[in-house]
């Protein structure tokens, strides 16, 4: 597919053209970098171009307190939500692959999560090539694929933009700030430095280590704060709660929120029985879901190697290191 070019000085024009029809979400520097909606030109100066944002784009697809349906006594009615068209800008390859994995998990031949599907259909994924990994990430080990609508590669004065999908191409054609170019994306452009650290052989044999006591080294440090789950771009487990109205108690909404497998309540059933009582079991469950269980079902690891679960852990529990030492 054809490539496009965006001059850096044109970026503001690009933004204003996009924001005519789309919400524009980009990694914004603040006390902590996270993906936020850009509402004015000034915010463009706060876009994080270099480092991986600590907070992933997850909240866009899986928002806090998301209404699932409305109920009234004994009837249930769909909520009327129409997601706005959105451009998700500045996603790194790890974030993009996490979305790809989420597609596999939440849209399969039997069932489709309707809310996720709608948001996905109404969003355009614009990647930003990540030139240098940090001390915790290991995306180079994780067989990530080119999964995006558009991808930006930074050059001195401009960005060369690769299009991957028809959706991306159609979008690029409409934005006049983007010009067609014959320039190709070179192999050099695609390189990300310092992004390998996991022992791939060990990772592929992880099933053999399930009973290993070495996992205790990590789990005994765990504070059960759930940061690893909350910062993981691909973790997708959720739970429902009913929120009745105060005056008309028989009316209300069923809400959805993100769950955390690192807590006892995750597997608690009626009668207060907990299936994964031990912290070590819960610690292992997250890692094994990421590296083994998801792969058994979908052929790829759920983990995309962004290292956020280690970078965001208060104790910096480095499970990659523990695995490498197996």
């Amino acid at each position: 597919m054809s490539n496009y070019v965006l001059q850096k000085e044109e970026f503001s024009a690009f933004f204003s053209q996009v924001s005519e029809n789309y919400d524009f979400i980009a990694p914004i520097k603040g006390k902590e970098t996270s993906f936020e909606k850009v509402t004015n030109d000034d915010m463009l100066n706060l876009i994080e171009w270099d480092e991986l944002p600590l907070f992933p784009i997850k909240h866009f697809f899986q928002p806090k307190d998301e209404p699932i349906f409305k109920y009234d006594k004994t009837t249930a009615k769909d909520v009327n939500s129409k997601p706005r068209k959105t451009v998700l800008f500045g996603l790194r390859l790890c974030d993009l692959n996490a979305i790809h994995h989420r597609d596999m998990a939440l849209m399969n031949e039997d069932f489709t999560d309707p809310f996720y599907k709608e948001r996905r259909e109404n969003s355009i994924l614009i990647g930003l090539h990540c030139k240098k990994g940090d001390e915790y990430c290991f995306c180079g080990d994780m067989d990530l694929h080119d999964f995006f609508d558009l991808m930006l590669y930074e050059h001195d004065e401009c960005f060369i933009i690769e299009t991957k999908t028809d959706k991306g191409l159609k979008f690029a054609k409409k934005i006049t700030a983007l010009d067609r170019t014959d320039k190709a994306i070179h192999a050099n452009d695609r390189i990300t430095e310092n992004n390998t650290r996991i022992d791939k052989e060990k990772m592929n044999k992880i099933a053999d280590f399930f009973t290993s006591e070495k996992w205790e080294e990590g789990s005994k440090l765990c504070l059960s704060c759930t940061a690893c789950n909350m910062l993981c771009p691909s973790c997708y487990c959720f739970e429902f709660t009913d929120e009745p109205e105060l005056v008309l108690l028989h009316k209300g909404q069923r809400m959805r929120n993100i769950s955390s497998c690192q807590l006892k309540c995750f597997t608690r059933v009626a009668g207060d029985f907990v299936f994964r009582k031990e912290k070590n079991d819960r610690f292992k469950h997250r890692i094994y879901h990421q590296l083994q269980y998801f792969k058994e079902k979908h052929g790829v690891t759920l983990c995309v190697g962004c290292g956020r679960c280690i970078r965001g852990c208060p104790k910096r529990i480095d499970w990659v290191d523990i695995l490498n030492k197996m």
Binding site: A105, L106, N108, D110, F111, D113, Y236, C237, F238, E239, F240, S259, C261, F266, T267, R268, V269, F275, H285, Y288, H289, Q292, Y293, F294, E296, K297
Partner: peptide
Amino acid sequence: ERMMQCGVGFCGHCMINGKYCCK
């Protein structure tokens, strides 16, 4: 038997290692 929330193999609560108890 496991805790179930969605019933369709998404929510993750019912996982027995890699198997979804619900699906």
